[in-house]
Design a binder for these strands. Sequence first.
DNA 1: TAGTTTTAAGTTTTT
DNA 2: CTTAAAACTA
Length: 801
Amino acid sequence: MAADSSQYLDVLNPEQREAVLHRGNPLLILAGAGSGKTRVITTKIAWLIRECGVDAASILAVTFTNKAAREMAARARLIDERSDRAMLRTFHSFGAWFLRRYGSRAGLEPGFTIYDDDDAAALTTTLMPGAPQAEVKQTARRISRAKDYFLSPDDPGLDAIDHRASFRAIYRAYEEKLAAIGNVDFGDLIKKPVEILRGDAEIARRFHERFRVFLVDEYQDSNVAQFELLKALYGEGAYLCVVGDDDQSIYRFRGAEVRNILEFPGRFPGVDIIRLERNYRSVAPILRLASAVVDHNRGRLGKNLRAERGTGKLPTLVFLADQEAEAVFAAKLIENSLAAGEGTARYTDWAILYRTHAQSLGLETEFLRRRIPYRIVGSLKFYEREEIKDALALLAFMLNPRDEIAFRRVVNKPARGVGGATVERIITEAFAITGAARDDAAGFLPPEIPRAASPAGDLAAAAKRLLPALTAKARAGLGTFLAAIEAGMEELTGAEASAGNDGGTDGNDSNGDSAKKVPRGKRGGGTRKAAASGLRSGEGLSRCLVTLVSRAGIAEHYAARDEIEGDSRIGNLQELVNGASLYPDSREGLAEFLEHIELDRSLEEGEAGGNGNAVTFITLHNTKGLEFRRVIMTGVEQGIFPREDKKDDDLEEERRLFYVGVTRAMDELYLTSCAMRRMYGRAMPMEPSLFLREAGRENLRVLGETPYGFGRAAGGNPAFRAGAPGGGRAAGSGRAGKASSDGKWKTGERLYHDDYGYGAIIRIDESEDGPVISARFDTGKEIRFLSESQSRRFTKIGEDF
DNA sequence: TAGTTTTAAGTTTTT
DNA sequence: CTTAAAACTA
């Protein structure tokens, strides 16, 4: 551990060493895949502390994922323990840290919770009543994008995202509502700190003094707002070093701006550039394949990766019949390698890569059947489960009684007679308090409602006020809900009497008070009700969660489902409860728990089976920064990878994603491409990916039945289109019916549909969403459908069928 | 309103 | 095929 010498620098190559020892001007490190950039950053942190007298606490290192942050912290600590005091975070986690301390400058209380994309969409729904779900989703996405680009509702630049005045109006309303609720979304975690730093010279000064060194990893995937944050934090004489690779920029869809790295030299004065082009990870043929493909991109800085490891096995391309065959191939390949290999061969050497999470399903089935251990990286599924979202909504509402989204989700779950009308009434009442609270300043508020107990928008307080005015059924149901929330509050140590506690005696009996008298750590199991639901509470926050979920009836609601489903849902809730036991049972602990869940969902799922020796299943995006001895990249088919609608810049991004995937492999790389794939439960013929042709035959060893058109002289022809489904014009001769504007349909043509059977087109209309096809089926049923979205389901069978 | 049945829609990629 | 929304019935 290089205790007293500078041995730790000896392992570096000349460029790496230059990068580590660099000081002064801002530095851009262009680090190719596998060129040791993590080593450079961690070594640099240690070197600054040891050799330059830099205080570790004045270093801020920003990474892209929590996992990378943890790994970097561990590696820096190995070189010098003092690196522990450096701040190593993701941009978003830094933003949350900032806002918990200085958010009050933007009207935030420290107990805010973070809305994920689903919550943001739910909030948008309340602003667009009656709008189709797809439109709401699109609007929510655009709002999120606007924040990535640091655009506020009144910014002229917003036109580039959506030029409609209606969009601005909804965005503005969204911001107002979010502010009224008192929460933030992901974009706010970056945008608000910038606004605070810009608006408050004193805070800015404090940060400029505190942080003297900035290190940014994966800089090619930073967005405009993150760049602004960096600029706002950066003070006179500080040191800035960013590391990235323009060929690995794969988050454009999320607002990542490659220009951040391409134009970095122009944005800061006197930037120095160091290139790391020696690749220590992959054997030469793998690197050649990667370069051959990414070379087809325009607009890149360009670099020359050299394979320090020398030559090795040629990557193998395997053509297969369908995804079942693909799963079998992957499983057998791994089994064989372990059987043939010495005792050193391990499942962990292997990773299976895919473009979308959905593709993991077929692989899982096969691996379970063969009892091959695997783990899935980065699947969000756990936190997307209904029961988990319900439990989290209860916690979030407890922390922030203004959380309308959480309230809507759980107030009537399970159904307890609190319908839509009642919910709207409560929300209106709560927001009416906004006005009342202003009146309060003038002394108009009835004295029996203390100001502190009913801050504007407090839904719990509003609900309580409305109780007497409701029907007996609604009153009882709402009472249960409020009692559950209060019971949960009772479980928090130091929970003072707040909004709820003046009313119902309900929360003040038995276990709330008595529990507090029991010393921490000596408490027994859950309450009686909890026992009935089968949930066991442990330490800390878990008691509160169990109480909440049990009293609210959520646990029983799911336990009452059929045995298999109920067991699994209760099991999931139990897992969440176990997680909560690691946090203190205070409001701070609760906020921390929720923040951790929002910002770091990198749970690993699957059958890893204890010792951690398992094959890795992972999306291409999630592999960033990782490496594996042996990689199988699946689904290398046109339409899957690249996705069908990709062209121009988006296609280039897919190509970079291919490059990222390929360069994860150290020793062996396999690519699989299926002739047929089941999508949406239907068999679809597939063609090999464009990238395979770009890779060049000489860079691949090909196995399996080569599809027509593959491997011929390229010449830019659409060779892969042979036998393509669904495209082209309506077949056939015969009567000339009226054709649709997209050329796919004409009247008189016969159709087949899985549910409706056989029928014929009787009419074609043109709408702004494209052609609308009307068909009468042999059952007598008439159906109208949009050509654009439905053409997959209605199959043409020709007129004389 | 609640619960059930029918019908449409969906799959990027992630902090 | 799976899940979400809409339509319908009690």
